[in-house]
Design a protein around this nucleic acid. Structure first.
Length: 472
RNA sequence: GCGCCCUUCGUCUAGAGGUCCAGGACGCGGCCCUUUCACGGCUGAAACACGGGUUCGAUUCCCGUAGGGCGCACCA
């Protein structure tokens, strides 16, 4: 095989694709692409209670929106339960697993006793060496892995380095539930092996699992994949990411008006670096990505930086592409439908004209939407407080005087600018004194893009009639 | 509680024993540009958690301490 690297992203479909998962997927994706390998997708849906169909599509949609694709069809872990059971039996045959007849209540009591005594809460191995003849009747057994009780299990982690676990710290975990369904650690090992996964890149929350899984690989005489555990993403306060921070689905970021390219760039930079490079394309990411430069410490999610980066991408995106992205954004963004409904071909053409000026100051698509509102707003134009104050001042007077000048001017930005400038000079005004009421009357807002671009974008008739409305 | 992991400006990070009185980016302050807001340019404040070692020399290696995180389910 010429492309030996196989990575996988293995979310459990119990909710949306959150930001940490998105980054894990990105790293797996980048690593696979970097090495000309494949990234597989596996849905860890063995928990039938919590796994849902909507969650699966939310995750797939999230990946697609982010621009991350995978190789082959997504694999359902649940569908492979028979194979997992088969391997559990194999472990039993090899003497590396045993049946445990403990009841839930018994295990609970065991944990409570350990906690009360200040001891580690582990299974005490009471069925480990007990003969089957002791089996109580009427109790369906679970199958436990017979973990080595001495020595150490070592993970040569590509991010963390060598991590040593003392085997006495790791108890005999259940690999097959009493109802015959596999448990996470068994399923993961079997699937990763069967799928030919060579590199496991996931969050550090799986580090302990890595040790247990490594033991299972060894018991099966299977090669252990290369492992890399990524530090988690924290909230701005350093604590766990909560809903009010960034623990949102990627769809929430989409609705906040962030561009996928900016998200990719930001996420890649969170915990990974390539020297001092801050802004880089996805192609560069693929070219540069490595595990050596993934940091070991958790990173805090910083919206301010994401926003700044998004601004860069807004400006860097070609007008037509940005327009397309914006229209797509409107179709699902809160309040976007109303604007979309008013965005006929005519309005779209104006928007396209105004875009170069608009995108300079919009850091997100949401801001773009707000700032482009005047292009499709119904008349009479709603005015914000500041715009109203300007017009209620001497704004109307200025407009009235300026109107005839505009009516006689060629309708291009430079011509309009020249005309307004010479008018200002003749009157002894500062340009701002003219620009402010113009802007207020045309956009209903005191903060907006270049006023001459606005005039052009709106078109001669629309502009003049709006100005007449407000001057009257 | 037990185990494991982490620790450079407020934040993301560069740094792989001398090149570091620690560099970049975001954010923040100032100045410039400017009709507003942005953009851009210049500039300022801002960090090697603490304590021991090792070494001629530690941000960089080792050991503690403190702080933080993750894990400890018949969840994944």
């Amino acid at each position: 095989m010429s492309s030996p690297v196989v990575t996988r992203f293995a979310p459990s479909p119990t909710g949306f694709l959150h930001i940490g998962g998105a980054r894990t997927a990105l790293f797996n994706w980048a690593y696979a692409r970097r090495h000309g390998g494949r990234m597989l997708l596996r849905i860890e849906d063995t928990d039938r209670q919590r796994s849902t169909e909507p969650a699966i599509s939310a995750i797939l949609d999230g990946l697609l929106w982010l621009g991350l694709d995978w190789d082959g069809a997504p694999l359902s872990q649940f569908a492979r339960a028979a194979r997992h059971r088969e391997i559990a039996e194999e472990l039993l045959r090899r003497g590396r697993a045993y049946r445990c007849y403990c009841t839930a209540a018994e295990l609970e009591a065991m944990r409570e006793r350990a906690a009360a005594a200040g001891l580690p809460q582990r299974y005490d191995g009471r069925w480990r060496d007990r003969p089957e003849s002791d089996a109580p009747t009427g109790v369906a057994p679970a199958i436990r892995f017979k973990a080595p009780s001495e020595g150490e299990t070592i993970i040569e982690d590509q991010v963390l380095g060598r991590v040593v676990f003392h085997n006495r710290e790791l108890d005999d975990l259940i690999i097959l539930r009493s109802d015959g369904t596999p448990t996470y650690n068994l399923a993961v090992v079997v699937d990763d092996h069967d799928m030919g996964v060579t590199h496991i890149i996931r969050g550090v929350d799986h580090l302990t699992n890595a040790a247990r899984q490594s033991q299972i690989y060894e018991a099966l005489d299977w090669p252990v994949p290369v492992m890399a555990h990524l530090p988690l993403i924290h909230g701005p306060d350093g604590a766990k990411l909560s809903k009010r921070h960034g623990a949102l689905g990627v769809d929430a970021y989409r609705d906040m008006g962030y561009l996928p390219a900016a998200m990719r760039n930001y996420l890649a930079r969170l915990g990974w670096s390539h020297g001092d490079d801050e802004i880089f394309s996805t192609e560069q990411l693929v070219e540069w990505f490595d595990l050596e430069h993934v940091g070991k410490s958790p990173a805090r999610f910083d919206f301010a930086k994401l926003e700044n980066l998004n601004g860069h991408y807004m400006r860097a995106t070609a007008d037509d592409a940005l327009l397309a992205a914006f229209v797509a954004f409107l179709s699902h963004a809160p309040g976007g439908a109303a604007m979309l409904a008013r965005l006929d071909d005519d309005a779209r053409a104006r928007l396209r004209l105004a875009l170069p000026g608009l995108k300079e100051r919009a850091k997100t698509l949401v801001e773009l939407k707000d700032q482009a509102g005047f292009l499709v707003a119904e008349r009479p134009l709603p005015l914000d407080d500041k715009a109203r104050a300007i017009l209620d001042g001497d704004g109307r007077e200025v407009l009235t005087a300026l109107l005839p000048v505009l009516e006689q001017t060629a309708w291009t930005a430079p011509a309009l600018e020249a005309a307004v400038k010479s008018f200002a000079e003749a009157r002894g005004f500062k340009l701002g004194k003219l620009a402010q009421p113009l802007r207020a009357a045309l956009t209903g807002s005191s903060t907006s893009p270049g006023i001459f671009d606005v005039l052009v974008a709106l078109g001669r008739e629309e502009s003049l009639s709006r100005l007449r409305d407000q001057a009257a």
